[in-house]
Nucleic acid binder design. Structure first.
Lengths: 230, 230
DNA sequence: TTGTCTATTGTTAGACG
DNA sequence: TCGTCTAACAATAGACA
């Protein structure tokens, strides 16, 4: 008798590296391969003592991430060394210069959106942070000593930079628009369209609307003077 | 008999998932596995039509990256919606590089200190930011043309605020430290160690993705870290 | 969505050029 | 640093739980 001829499984099948058609199949494969990828990354970390960060947007656009030691700090370092991208809206706009007004406006929108999202995110984070700082002993609030000052200086410098970037950008925009629009106001102009929708994945080019506003002439910036720190 | 003619190769050997000791070996393994990881990521992209970004810092601290469609845009999107990121981390990191060049452990401490300081600052800033955000009713979602300026202004205001806080605190510290010693450099002691692979994931429903293309890899070479270690 | 099982395919450690 | 080769290992497609 031995009708066992039937194999319980055909084992792994070869599949072409092309988009999987079957939805259910795709989901399963995505899940399995994602964990496989993360595992590989984990092994790489351990074996070679290196740092790895992975970000994956699922078919449903949900973010999954892997990071050793942690995603944020790695991205931070990566971005900090990569002149092509800066979280604080700095460099990308520099390249645009004044080639196309639209492109410029669009780029700006992207950046503003990014920033506003960050601001929003940080606002939200503030709450949980507040909770955290209460729950645990705030080591960063320990007795002030010299070091605190040092760090503060760094932070302040960073803020200066950020602010400077914003100003530069505003001025750039202003100069640009003054070529097409003559304002009766000596203030910088700013052109912008719908800012959101930074999240869509399809590489479709956004339509760029435009409009203008006047920035208070007092916008000359000049951060209030530095305190005795510098 | 059976002199067992030497095999041309013993084939793949099993190795423990622990840091490889031999430097040359580690280098080879790193290279191979890194490309293997990128290949896996590439396949995942193609098979499932998803987006993936990977950042790896080699043992020599060189950054390698893979991204589909491209690293920057993915990081951008990820950071924009991730509450755990700091807006000005990048900037301050750069400064630290110049300021201190010591042990990596110290570097880590500094980094943590810096981050926590920012966190603290942002926590305080939370209130005013919150006010602003609500006052303008989701200004970043408003399609009105003149919002661009507002965004800049709000951002600027937020930064002014933060800066003010920093200044205040700095002054306070300055005053205090004047009374004490100035030479003692006691950093907030925090030794960060093994924070092994951590997975973060969100539940996901699903939906059909769109087309897919493979972008083998994008290597960003260069820049031998300016952090301690050397 | 994740885990299990099996048969296969894919990856890679070690040695060498 | 890379490519090649070989023989192990490891990952995983498909079906089911």
């Amino acid at each position: 008798m031995m009708k066992k001829t039937k194999k319980s499984s055909q084992g792994r099948q070869k599949i072409p590296i092309a988009k999987i058609a079957k939805r259910t199949n795709l989901q399963v494969t995505f899940s399995k391969r994602r964990s496989g990828l993360f595992k590989k990354a984990s092994e790489l970390c351990t074996l070679c003592g290196v740092e790895v960060a992975i970000i994956v947007f699922s078919p449903a656009k949900k973010p999954y991430s892997f990071g050793h030691p942690e995603v944020d700090s790695l991205l931070d370092r990566f971005l900090a060394r990569n002149p092509n991208f800066n979280i604080s809206l700095a460099d990308s706009s520099l390249q645009l210069g004044k080639a196309h007004k639209n492109a410029s406006a669009h780029e700006l929108n992207m950046q503003l959106t990014r920033i506003s999202n960050q601001v929003e995110a940080e606002r939200k984070r503030g709450e949980s942070l507040d909770k955290m700082s209460k729950a645990s002993e705030c080591w960063w609030e320990n007795p002030v000593d010299e070091l605190g000052l040092d760090e503060l200086q760094i932070l302040e410098a960073a803020m200066e930079d950020l602010k400077k970037n914003v100003n530069d950008q505003a001025n750039r925009i202003w100069m640009e628009s003054s070529n097409t629009t003559t304002a009766n106001n000596s203030a910088p102009f700013f052109v912008k369209n719908n800012a959101h929708h930074l999240f869509e994945s399809s590489p479709s080019s956004d339509q760029v609307g435009s409009g203008s506003i006047i920035i208070p002439s007092a916008y000359d910036i000049g951060f209030a003077g530095n305190i005795g720190l510098f």
